[in-house]
Amino acid sequence: MIRPVELRAIRDGAVDLAFRRWDRPRVKVGTRLRTAVGLVEVTEVERVAPSRITAAEARRAGAPTLAALRERLAEPADRPVWRVGLRHAGADPREALREQLPDDAERAALAARLDRLDAAAADGPWTRETLRLIERRPGVRAPDLAASLGRETAEFKRDVRKLKELGLTVSLDVGYRLSPRGAALLGVAPPALPTGTPLPRVGAPASRALAAAGVATLEDVAAWRRGDLQALHGVGPHAVRVLGDALAGVGLDFAG
């Protein structure tokens, strides 16, 4: 529920508040949310009257003006407004976990964990089959992967999240790939990754368009003019802004 532009601002320290109309608090102080920029921690949750929100608080929430924030909070008017304090709490620990190759003891523990997941499944074992499918078909849409197994997409994605919690898979804008940890567990070669700086998450349509154009890294992006990139079907202004921010972060820019 936090927009990508706000997530980046939280990471950079420019935003540390959010305002939401909820019937009741949806988060608790101390909750750590896993997001595209890492962990975001909830530091406060307080019910407030919209009329008491200040211009300074609106800016801290990423709104250009107090009026813009109040307009955003206009509906649903029958629900109270909650002020939520936020802070960036570091990298998602799963990012480090998926790079860690298991030793013999860890491999046995992971295998036992997968066995328990299989035993608890109403439709029978699924963990190794799913890992092998992702290994064979990286970057393929989840609905297509699910259909190849005769499974519902929502259930398939739920199960892949369990594998991700163990550091065995990596979610892409489109589909998944095995992590080095997952490859080691299966005894296969780790997936070949593009050499260069990985692309930020820009959404599935833009990711498909970039892949079709042979753009796999930020160094590839830097060879394109901004307008030419945005002319690709599926690459909209938001994706170009995200790519531009990522380029600036590594000292690069669009061509021209």
Rank of each mutant, 00 (worst) to 15 (best):
residue 7 L to K: 00
residue 8 R to G: 00
residue 16 D to S: 13
residue 22 W to Q: 07
residue 23 D to T: 09
residue 24 R to H: 13
residue 26 R to Y: 14
residue 29 V to T: 08
residue 30 G to C: 06
residue 32 R to M: 07
residue 45 V to K: 05
residue 46 E to V: 11
residue 52 R to G: 10
residue 54 T to W: 06
residue 57 E to D: 12
residue 59 R to G: 03
residue 62 G to L: 05
residue 63 A to T: 10
residue 68 A to G: 13
residue 68 A to Q: 11
residue 73 L to I: 13
residue 77 A to G: 13
residue 80 P to V: 06
residue 85 G to P: 06
residue 94 R to L: 14
residue 96 A to C: 10
residue 100 Q to G: 02
residue 101 L to D: 10
residue 109 A to P: 00
residue 110 L to Y: 06
residue 110 L to V: 04
residue 122 A to W: 10
residue 123 D to M: 08
residue 125 P to I: 11
residue 126 W to T: 08
residue 127 T to Q: 01
residue 132 R to C: 09
residue 134 I to S: 04
residue 135 E to T: 08
residue 139 G to K: 03
residue 147 A to G: 05
residue 150 G to Y: 14
residue 153 T to F: 04
residue 155 E to M: 07
residue 158 R to Y: 15
residue 169 T to R: 09
residue 169 T to C: 11
residue 170 V to G: 07
residue 173 D to N: 12
residue 176 Y to H: 14
residue 178 L to N: 12
residue 180 P to A: 13
residue 189 A to E: 15
residue 199 L to N: 05
residue 200 P to L: 03
residue 201 R to L: 06
residue 212 A to K: 07
residue 213 A to E: 02
residue 218 L to Y: 03
residue 222 A to P: 06
residue 226 R to N: 09
residue 226 R to G: 09
residue 234 G to E: 03
residue 238 H to Q: 15
residue 238 H to W: 11
residue 243 L to C: 09
residue 246 A to F: 06
residue 247 L to C: 10
residue 252 L to G: 06
